[in-house]
Write a protein that binds this DNA or RNA. Structure first.
Lengths: 346, 346
DNA sequence: ATTAGCACTCGACTAGTTGGAGTGCTAACA
DNA sequence: TGTTAGCACTCCAACTAGTCGAGTGCTAAT
C-alpha cells in the first residue's frame, strides 16, 4: 500500500484535529473539512488503510482514531509546517527578563519559566557545560584558618567557587601568589585539561605545595563536572491541564520522574550533540515518559561554534510540535544573546 | 459546655484515626477502640457535643465526622505527643548527604529532598539570609575589559559573586589594591550596613573612584537581598498521593501556587522570627493553601543565636503533625551542624 | 473510485435500586 | 445522672439497566 498525497493530507488533518481536541477523530469530522470534498465513507476507507500502515490507532471499535507515534514521527519529519512565533508571545517572553537579573542561574531559571508559560508544557534548561570552556582566572580567597575559597573564571565569563582545604604551613599571603602563578600558567587552557595539567606539570614543579595543588585540582574538577542540580525545571504542573494526565496515577509518575532531575539531565546531556532533537512517545528511554514527547535545542554563547547547554520541552505526544520548535528556536537565540550581553556589555 | 478529659481523649482518637484514614470517623469505630469502654451511643453523644463546640464537622448527615481546623489547633497546642524519629528515618535522611556535596545550595536542596522523602509531604528550605551576617573578605577579579567579578565572603563563610561594571580608567592592577582596601575597612561590619558605609564613608574618601565604589555597593546590595529564587522546594508531587488532591483542579491550584516561589518565600520569611510555627488550614493567607497546613522551623549555624533561614513542610491539614515537627527538629539541628562543618572543618 | 445506506459496536450518560454506614432520638437501665 | 440498646431516618456509594450517539465496516449502487 502506498502513502499517496491524499492519505498524507488526511493524516495531517487528523493529527491537527487530535492535537487540538485530544479526543479520537472520526471520519465524519474529517470529511467536513472544506479542504476535502469527500464523503465520510471515503475517508473511512482511507483511514482504514492508514491504520493498516500503522499511522493510526483505534482505542476501541466504535471510537474515532488517534495518531500513532509513527504518525507523529512522519509529521515532524515531513509534513509539519513550523508555526511563526507571535508578537504577543515574544512580549510574554520578554517580561520574564525585564527585571534586573544578577545571576546566570537566574537567567536560566527565567528561561525555563518563559518557555513553559508560552508553550504551556514543561520546560527544562541545562546550564552551560564548562568543560569545553577555557580558563581565564583563578583566585584564592582566604576564608578561615585552614580553608580558602577557590574562585574560577572561565573564558566565556562564568564564575564558579568552591571551598577548599588549605594545608597547614601555607601562609595567607601565599594564596595571592599561588593565584597569580596558576592564572599565568593555566590561562587559556580548556577547563577539562586544567586539573590534569596541575597534576602532571605544576605539582612536580612546586613539590612542597603538592597537597594544596591537588586540593585545588579537585575543587576545579568538582566544579566543572555538571550534575542533575544544573537542570532548571518549570511548569511541571502544566501537565495536569491535559486530559492525558487526568489519571492521577499517571500524573504522579510523571511528576516524580521529573522531580528527580537525573533523568532529565541524562536526556539533555544526550541531546546536547544535536542542534534539535524530537523524541516521540515510545522513543523515550524512561518508562514514565513513554507517552510524552521531548523536544530539545542547544544554545550557544553569542556566535560561538561550541554549544554550551540545552533547552527542552516535555509535553504530551499530542503536543503542538510546530509551536514548540519555533519557541525553542527563538529562545536558543535569545538566550545566547542574553548570556553574552550579561558578560560583555553593561 | 465543658471540654472534659474524656471529650479530649475522644477528640484525639478521632483525629488520630482521621489522619490515618482520611475518611470521616464514625462513632462505632471510636467505640471499638479498647481504650474506651463505651458504647457507640455514648460516643455519639460526646461527638455531638464536640461538634457543637466546633471541634468536629459533618460532611453530610449520615457520614462520620472530621476534625475542624480548630480541633487541629487544639491538637498541636495541647494534646499532641511528639513522635520520636526512628533509626530508619535517620538513616534515610543521612543517605541524602552521603555523597560529597560541594555547594551550600546543594546542601539546601538535599535538605528539602530529605525532608520530603521522610515525611511524604512537600518540603521547602529558605536559604540563609545574609543581612545579619558580617563581612569577611571582598575580592575583585578581572573578567573582561570593563567588567570584574565581585566576590564577597561573609563571617559565617558564605561566598557570593556578582558581575560588576568597571569604569574606564580603573587599571587591572588597581582591583587588587581596592580589594584590600575594602576588606580592611569593612571587615566585621554587618552586611546590611556595608553598602551604606561605602556610600557614606568610603566614596568621599576616594572621590576619583566614586563611580566604581557605587557599582560595588550596588552589587553587594543585590546579593544580600534574598528573593524567591532562594527557596528550595522538593516533593511537590507528593501531594498527589493524598485523597485531598484527588480533585485535579485542586492539585493544579496547589502546584501552581507552589511553583511560583513567591508565596512560599513570603511565608517562610514571615515565619523566620519564630523557632517553630504551625499554620493550620484557614489560618493560611494564601487561598490555595487554605486546606493545607504549613509547619516551619528556623535553623542556625552551629550554636549561634541568630537564625539564618527557615525550613518548612506543607501537607494536608490532616497531616501527621507530631512526625513533621520531630523531623524538622532533627533537620534544623543537622543542617546547622552540616553548614558549620562545611565551612569550618574538612 | 466514490458514495449512500445499513447493521453493528461500544463508551458515556442517565435514572433507578439497593445496601451499608452513620446519625439522632427515645426509652430503659444501673 | 450517665450509659446503653433499639429504631427510624438519611444519604452516599456502588451497581444495574437502558438509552443515545458517534463511530465503524461492509455492501451495493452510481
Amino acid at each position: 500500500m502506498e502513502l499517496d498525497a491524499r492519505k498524507l493530507k488526511i493524516l495531517q488533518a487528523i493529527i491537527d484535529e487530535y492535537v487540538m481536541s485530544a479526543s479520537p477523530v472520526g471520519s465524519r469530522s474529517v470529511s467536513k473539512n472544506p479542504e476535502f470534498n469527500l464523503s465520510s465513507a471515503t475517508i473511512r476507507n482511507e483511514m482504514a488503510d492508514l491504520e493498516e500502515m500503522g499511522f493510526l490507532e483505534q482505542p476501541h471499535t466504535s471510537a474515532g482514531r488517534i495518531p500513532s507515534d509513527k504518525a507523529y514521527r512522519l509529521y515532524v519529519d515531513t509534513i509539519m509546517n513550523r508555526a511563526q512565533i507571535s508578537r504577543d508571545e515574544i512580549r510574554k517572553i520578554r517580561t520574564h527578563f525585564s527585571s534586573k537579573i544578577s545571576e546566570v542561574d537566574e537567567i536560566l531559571k527565567q528561561t525555563a519559566v518563559a518557555i513553559s508559560s508560552v508553550t504551556n508544557y514543561t520546560a527544562m534548561v541545562l546550564a552551560p557545560e564548562l568543560d569545553c570552556d577555557t580558563l581565564r582566572h583563578i583566585q584564592l580567597v582566604p576564608l578561615v584558618p585552614g580553608k580558602a575559597l577557590l574562585v574560577i573564571v572561565t573564558g566565556t565569563g562564568f564564575a564558579k567557587d568552591a571551598v577548599i582545604h588549605v594545608p597547614v604551613g601555607v601562609r595567607t599571603e601565599e594564596l595571592e601568589q599561588i593565584s597569580r602563578f596558576l592564572t599565568k600558567r593555566l590561562y587559556g587552557r580548556r577547563m577539562d585539561m586544567v586539573a590534569e595539567m596541575i597534576a602532571s606539570e605544576l605539582e612536580p614543579e612546586m613539590a612542597d605545595r603538592r597537597e594544596f595543588l591537588s586540593n585545588i585540582a579537585d575543587g576545579i574538577e568538582r566544579k566543572i563536572t555538571p550534575n542533575r542540580k544544573s537542570v532548571e525545571l518549570a511548569g511541571a504542573g502544566n501537565m495536569l491541564h491535559y486530559p492525558e494526565y487526568a489519571d492521577l496515577q499517571k500524573a504522579r509518575n510523571f511528576l516524580s520522574a521529573v522531580e528527580g532531575r537525573d533523568a532529565l539531565y541524562n536526556m539533555l546531556k544526550r541531546a546536547s550533540s544535536l542542534e534539535f532533537t524530537v523524541t516521540i512517545g515510545s522513543e523515550n528511554e524512561q518508562d514514565e515518559l513513554k507517552d510524552c514527547s521531548v523536544v530539545t535545542a542547544t544554545y550557544r554563547m553569542g556566535d560561538q561554534s561550541m554549544p554550551m547547554g540545552t533547552l527542552g520541552v516535555i509535553g504530551p505526544t499530542r503536543m503542538n510540535y510546530g509551536k514548540v520548535i519555533s519557541v525553542l528556536e527563538y529562545m536558543r537565540r535569545s538566550l545566547g544573546e542574553i548570556l553574552s550581553n550579561y558578560i560583555e556589555e553593561d
